[in-house]
């Protein structure tokens, strides 16, 4: 429990990939002791995000992607490719020791998300098994790692982390609908189509506000502390602008590997 933390909840609208990644990264860079941030957001265009160290250059049919209106961005965090489309995306920033280090944080945050999703009727579990996968092991939703949120044997939430200075960023996708098969189409690997669990398949009708409410409530209960709605600070906006210009909107970053 992080009973001492003051949490700020930022409900953001849909943004382009570089702006989303810059904002998440900026929240971590500007993190302050004793404070946590939860950001909930979505994506203007369908966007493939690569893990920080994931090989991508030369592996994707970019013409095909452009024809379908799919954008690309590279995350600050680890892990593997995700197609962001119909989903709720979360980002949590905390002081790195507040939840007991990266691995303990991963478990605690996922426990909070799982509790929230369970509260709205999604029969999720946090897996205690899985594989240690390298960045070039395929799509993120292809296989769960230990501590991830699953329905049956399929991943519902894909998450990744960045430690920067004394701050920890964890962000991830809660899939509402759709599959990740476009990733296979864009990479030509049609034999192994990834189909994650979706809230639509579990709940039927999905009300996004209800999901957000459940997620916030679950995290509040598991992580503790005091919570209030808030906005970006000016320093965070400035840092996000710098990171977007210098890194996340640059093809050299997106296609660095």
């Amino acid at each position: 429990m992080t009973s001492g933390l003051q949490w700020r909840v930022i409900r953001d609208g849909p943004c382009a990939g570089p702006h989303n990644m810059a904002l998440d990264h900026a929240l971590a860079v500007c993190s302050q002791q004793g404070q946590g941030v939860l950001r909930l957001y979505s994506w203007i265009e369908a966007t493939v995000s690569f893990g920080r160290n994931e090989p991508a250059r030369g592996l994707y049919d970019r013409t095909n992607a452009a024809d379908q209106g799919i954008e690309f961005v590279r995350r600050p965090t680890g892990g593997r490719a995700v197609l962001h489309s119909n989903e709720i995306t979360y980002a949590i920033v905390v002081p790195v020791r507040a939840l007991g280090g990266p691995r303990a944080s991963y478990i605690e945050i996922n426990r909070g998300l799982a509790e929230g999703l369970s509260s709205i009727g999604a029969a999720v579990t946090v897996t205690d098994h899985g594989e240690t996968l390298s960045p070039n092991a395929g799509a993120c939703f292809g296989a769960p790692a230990p501590g991830e949120i699953i329905v049956g044997e399929k991943k519902l939430v894909g998450s990744a982390q960045l430690r920067v200075g004394d701050a920890l960023l964890q962000h991830g996708s809660i899939i509402i609908d759709g599959d990740q098969s476009l990733l296979n189409q864009l990479t030509g690997k049609l034999h192994d189509i990834v189909r994650p669990a979706t809230l639509r398949s579990v709940l039927g009708v999905v009300h996004q506000d209800q999901v957000k409410f459940g997620v916030i409530d679950g995290l509040k209960h598991v992580l503790g502390g005091s919570w209030e709605e808030g906005e970006y600070l000016s320093g965070e906006r400035n840092e996000a602008g710098r990171l977007e210009r210098q890194r996340y909107s640059q093809a050299g970053w997106t296609w660095r590997r």
Binding site: G78, P102, Y106, S159, A160, Q161, R163
Partner: peptide, 8 residues
């Protein structure tokens, strides 16, 4: 990078 966590 460790499983999903990147650190500087």
């Amino acid at each position: 990078e460790a499983v999903k966590a990147v650190s500087d």
